[in-house]
């Protein structure tokens, strides 16, 4: 039973509590109660859920932490040590935060065979487990759309089809969408504080300790690839992946944006992204676009390929192809 529950990531339609007139009264009521609490000095502004092991100096350091690209190597390792301390205090777990730089001469690209994709959503599950996404509320980087065969009109797609019983359905095709790692990313342009940028290996990353949570990037993205932490993310301790990267899958906090990074914590070590590994039909091809002998280059040169919304000139490094 538990196993099934783990495997069955239900796609939630609403990720927020419903509000009714009763909750309005509650909002007022808790408000009045909070006045009492504040005046009694029991509640403070911006209370923290982090236990005492993460001391005042650490919180001070966190507040004044510099932008990732402005810090020296030593400063970054100091920051990483502090973040690991925080995870230890928060989750009682040794989470390793890596900082593997990009390979020189590598630009990552992804291709997906839409004839092979059967809509099982295994990529979605693999991604959530690998990348420490919040389980409540649920955050998923990959959206698999179910479309009528013969039309690529996304507006007619079904986002919440059931992947447990009847996939693949007759007359349907499946189109997984995740961050396309645009070469000309509109999200990077939109960010007011440069908290998101394109790395030399072509991957668009977010500094979760610099993001101010304004959501300009989410508005700018034509592929709906960015996810916001509307509340403190919840991940059961035994489901946390302790192998992380500063710019990728380390656990996030509320109020910041996150997104797919082509699993740089894996791919920068020569492994494949989690969605690639999870795909049961072999629909995904990942590799170095600069390597003429790579499988991805073979696909791009020999198959019928297309990209979504090419007319926007965002130059995605994510292609779809057919057999």
């Amino acid at each position: 039973m538990k196993k099934q529950k783990e495997n069955q990531l239900k796609i939630k339609i609403k990720n927020r509590p419903d509000f009714s007139r009763r909750t309005a009264l509650k909002a007022l009521g808790t408000g009045v109660a909070a006045v009492g609490a504040v005046t009694a000095g029991r509640a403070g502004f911006g209370k923290t859920e982090v236990p005492a092991e993460y001391g005042l100096m650490d919180q001070f350091g966190e507040f004044f932490q510099q932008h990732y690209k402005k810090m020296s190597k030593e400063e970054i390792s100091g920051v990483i040590e502090r973040i690991e301390r925080k995870y230890k205090a928060k989750y009682d777990l040794d989470v390793k935060v890596g900082d593997t730089p990009p390979f020189p001469g590598v630009v990552f690209g992804y291709a997906l065979n839409i004839n092979k994709c059967k809509g099982y959503r295994e990529c979605v599950r693999g991604c959530v487990e690998e990348n420490n996404q919040s389980r409540d509320p649920q955050i998923q980087y990959i959206r698999v759309l179910e479309l009528d065969r013969g039309s690529l009109n996304l507006e007619k797609s079904e986002h919440y089809y059931d992947d447990q019983t009847d996939v693949p359905k007759d007359g349907k095709m499946y189109l997984p969408i995740q961050c396309h790692q645009c070469d000309n990313p509109p999200c990077v342009k939109a960010c007011p504080v440069e908290a998101t940028w394109k790395e030399p290996d072509g991957v668009v990353v977010v500094d979760y300790n610099w993001c101010i949570g304004c959501r300009m990037c989410a508005n700018a993205c034509p592929y709906w690839a960015r996810r916001f932490n509307w509340s403190e993310p919840v991940i059961p301790k035994d489901e946390i992946n302790p192998e992380t990267h500063y710019l990728s899958n380390r656990p996030r906090e509320k109020g910041v944006m996150e997104k797919c990074t082509f699993c740089i914590q894996r791919t920068r070590k020569g492994e494949l992204p989690a969605c690639h590994q999870a795909c049961p039909t072999g629909a995904r091809v990942f590799g170095n676009l600069l390597d003429v002998n790579s499988e991805i280059r073979y696909v791009l040169e020999n198959k019928d390929i297309f990209r979504l919304k090419e007319e926007l000139n965002t130059e995605p490094k994510f292609w779809y192809y057919t057999d």
Partner: peptide, 11 residues
Amino acid sequence: NTGLILTGMSD
């Protein structure tokens, strides 16, 4: 304290 989840906004 709780986050913007208290609003009606979503991804």
